[in-house]
Design a protein around this nucleic acid. Structure first.
Length: 374
DNA sequence: TCCTCCCGCCACACG
DNA sequence: CGTGTGGCGGGAGGA
């Protein structure tokens, strides 16, 4: 009964006299924030799209956008038509870990096309699914949710996951949407329209992820070009949960390596030259470029979350694929996470999240050892 | 001007 | 055929 609020309203008004328009008020990011604060309360377990749309005062179409990306990160899960299940922030760590595992397993989808002719506009479809393997329970499948599609998941959802994987499975921590787009789909040789479209989507995704503080917009120190860098679950309440999630013990170890300068240690090599282009544009290797990311580590306790440890088997020579691909040196990829700082200048919104995090944290921590999936 | 990216048309999936 | 989903890209707001 308590209509939270109709922020960014002025949509269906008739005689709008003030508030001309203001595009900012209708951004996906803001909408996402509202959406989150609207449903992130204990008790919520189901979300109706219509309900959300009307409560947030936006058209349905926009809700789909939000929901799709949120689902990609594990916060939501489609239950049925018009119905989503609220998983909460607690589901994020696990979801991210799965994403990382997937990402490592089949480095950047799209098999090996892009070599030359393969101009298929929509390759990336192999890995499909998102919580396929190792999703809790689901023993006797038969669940109507698991659709045997693969074609359907065309964009947003998958794009979001792949975008995130880029951060989790690669050592580059600053990615421009343009590079991400090129990377996420075939080569980057034909600046066709496909890329432009992808970039548009990435803007949407980035806005949503930004509003959740998963990523942050910055600029390349030199290029001055706007790019995004991963924040992940950094600075969150505590990282203890990580321990219960990480079976392996090697997680702190590699950690220190990233800031230092494991530079030429053994940069990962993509079989493609896809990453080449990135390397060209911006340094992709292990971040050795730390001009000012270690200084501002205020916060009495900058938790270096290590949610995604290389729990997977040490694939030095080859991943367990069966395609006869080249080997990949996944050594320094663990550098996905690095100490992060967060000043207190964070908005009110953030405080809301902190609360949420602590909430789920205590829940998870108290519930006991979250059995590691595997 | 170039970068962002909102809006909503309309194709596709279901039932 | 109606309804729910959600690609896709035009083109307008913003810096």
């Amino acid at each position: 009964m308590n209509s939270v609020s109709k922020l960014a309203g002025a949509v269906t008004d008739s005689g709008s006299k003030d508030i001309p328009y203001c595009r900012k008020q209708k951004s996906l990011g803001l909408l996402c924030s509202n959406f989150l604060s609207l449903y992130d309360h204990d008790g919520i377990e189901s979300i109706g799209l219509d309900d959300a749309a009307s409560k947030l005062g936006v058209e349905r179409r926009r809700i789909y956008d939000i929901v799709n990306v949120l689902e990609s990160v594990g916060i939501l899960s489609r239950k049925a038509k018009n119905r989503y299940t609220w998983k909460g922030f607690g589901a994020i760590p696990k979801a991210l870990e799965n994403l990382k595992r997937e990402g490592l397993r089949d480095i950047v989808p799209a098999a090996d096309a892009s070599c030359s002719e393969k101009i298929s506009d929509d390759e990336e479809d192999e890995m499909c699914s998102d919580m396929n393997s190792l999703s809790q329970n689901d023993r006797s499948d038969s669940s109507s949710l698991l659709k045997r599609d693969g074609r359907k998941e065309k964009s947003l959802g998958l794009l979001t996951q792949n975008f995130v994987k880029l951060f989790l499975c690669t050592d580059m921590d600053m990615i421009s949407l343009d590079d991400a787009a090129k990377l996420l789909l075939g080569d980057g040789k034909h600046t066709s329209m496909t890329t432009r479209t992808k970039v548009r989507r990435l803007y949407d995704i980035a806005n949503v992820l930004s509003s959740m503080k998963f990523i942050e917009k910055t600029h390349h120190p030199e290029t001055r070009k706007p790019a995004f860098r991963w924040l992940g679950l950094t600075g969150k309440p505590d990282s203890s949960i990580a321990d219960s999630l990480i079976p392996s013990d090697s997680k702190k170890r590699i950690f220190g390596t990233d800031l230092t300068n494991a530079t030429t240690t053994k940069r990962l090599r993509m079989d493609e030259d896809r990453f080449k282009i990135l390397k060209a544009h911006n340094q992709v290797q292990v971040k050795h470029e730390n001009e000012n990311e270690d200084e501002t580590i205020t916060a009495g306790k900058s938790y270096q979350f290590g949610p995604f440890a290389p729990a997977n088997p040490p694939k030095v020579g080859d991943s367990h694929d069966g395609e006869g691909k080249e080997a990949v040196d996944w050594e320094s990829l663990a550098s996905s996470y690095r100490p992060q700082y967060h000043n207190q200048a964070l908005k009110d919104l953030f405080s809301h999240f902190v609360e949420a995090w602590q909430s789920w944290y205590s829940e998870v921590a108290g519930k006991g050892p979250m059995q590691l999936m595997s």
